[in-house]
Amino acid sequence: MSRRAITLRVNGEEVTALVEPRLNLADFLRQEAELTGTHVGCEHGVCGACTVKVDGRAVRGCLMLAVQCEGAEIETVEGLAASAQGSELCEAFVEQNALQCGFCTPGMLITAAELLDDNPAPTREEVRDHLSGNYCRCTGYQAIVDAVMDVAAKREMS
């Protein structure tokens, strides 16, 4: 299969690579950009483990091809964690034990960050609804909801 050159920005850094047209964004990030924080749980858009931000919106990395991201701005969990807003969320996750194995966590964090961007003061039900596309086998979800609510409360106070 003939490879194609793409250039995009990942967590603020420019990345250029020759990729097969069939390579999806999640695999691109993991294998080409060597950012293994983005996880793959189903490869068909259901589990949410591969969620990353593309031009500011949370998308499934397994449902998008790398070649579709030419010129795009990608944010992965590594980038999110390095930002001030993101690290607040990360700390809340640790504090509330909102992760056990941590495999769903990168996708959860990106999804939660998007929710708080759009709706800074969500109810518990809204948090549960928004996270409903992200599967977690370990936690039972409650601690994740707690962590997101903590961050919302903290931001409201400041």
């Binding site: 293994t36 590594e78 964690a81 992760l99 941590g102 966590t105």
Partner: peptide, 12 residues
């Protein structure tokens, strides 16, 4: 060990 996992620094 949670601190690394939330930063995408797990080693699976």
């Amino acid at each position: 060990n949670a601190a690394g996992l939330v930063r995408g620094r797990g080693r699976f």
